[in-house]
């Protein structure tokens, strides 16, 4: 249960970032957690190859979010501290929760299925994971923009940055959706199968963010309202990214063969 070690490292990093002004130490902990998590996830993917690992999304999400945190906040932390980047601990908190969900609610017990032995299934999965991570990060930035302590130009910058993340996330989500449809056609003979919840959730998220992009053209919506919309969307993304891939509660270190 090496995942538990990564959870411990992430949790330590989160609390250090939150309570103790040692940015380097928190970055180190998150780095260690990410390295372990990435190794575990890579091993799982490699294990299932050439098929697609089942219920892998939540594990992948934690890794991509970690990379986003390291690239965006790991070094900045060292220079400016947390006060300049309020979204950093929020994102860290989300990462800890997602990793905890993979450790305590695993659903990795299904054996891969043969129809996933095609490149489009992998594009569907991976593009979807990266897209969801971008969208969650956009939501985190919008949440930070909603905090009352920020100055106006900073709020605008945060919102613009959130929009950028969302636009690219939306692009990747579209790639994921279309790859899913292509895979669906090659495997099942039709571009959409309505009995598969995975496609329903991706389509639901895609329509939500399509709606957000349209909101940018409605002048009656203020930036605050749009930010709230983005935060709600990030919650929806987290729900649809995590819930289908979560099994029942399970204590780590038990049932090892």
């Amino acid at each position: 249960m090496i995942e538990t070690c990564s959870l411990a490292a992430y949790t330590a990093g989160f609390f250090i970032a939150l309570c103790w002004p040692r940015p380097f130490l928190s970055t180190l902990c998150i780095g260690i957690g990410t390295a372990i998590n990435f190794a575990v996830v890579l091993d799982r993917y490699n294990g299932a190859w050439p098929m697609m690992p089942m219920h892998f999304g939540i594990a992948g999400l934690s890794v991509v979010l970690s990379f986003i945190w390291i690239c965006n906040y790991g070094t900045i932390n060292r220079q400016n501290g947390l006060r300049q980047q309020p979204e950093s601990p929020i994102l860290l908190g989300i990462i800890v929760l997602v990793v905890a969900a993979t450790v305590f609610f695993p659903k990795d017990f299904y054996v891969p299925f043969l129809r996933s032995n095609v490149i489009w299934s992998h594009v569907f999965l991976l593009a979807g994971i990266v897209a969801k991570s971008f969208l969650v990060h956009g939501g985190v930035k919008a949440f930070a923009a909603l905090q009352g302590t920020q100055k106006k130009p900073k709020i605008a910058a945060l919102f613009n940055s959130a929009t950028n993340w969302i636009v690219y996330g939306y692009g990747l989500l579209t790639v994921s959706l279309f790859s899913g449809e292509l895979w669906c056609y090659l495997g099942w003979g039709t571009p959409v199968v309505w009995h598969d919840a995975a496609l329903t959730t991706v389509l639901s998220l895609w329509l939500y963010w399509t709606c957000f992009l349209h909101l940018l053209f409605i002048r009656s919506w203020s930036q605050k309202q749009r930010s709230r919309f983005v935060v709600a969307g990030a919650v929806l993304v987290l729900f649809f990214a995590c819930h289908p891939d979560m099994g029942p509660f399970r204590l780590p270190f038990q049932g090892q063969g």
Partner: peptide, 27 residues
């Protein structure tokens, strides 16, 4: 319409749990 679709598909996600047999024959 987009928001109604999101709400509807989210409801669909819940309704689909364990109901594969209902939608599969549509294919």
């Amino acid at each position: 319409l987009l928001l109604l679709l999101v709400a509807d598909l989210s409801l669909g996600y819940i309704c689909l749990q364990g109901k594969v047999s209902l939608f599969q024959p549509m294919n």
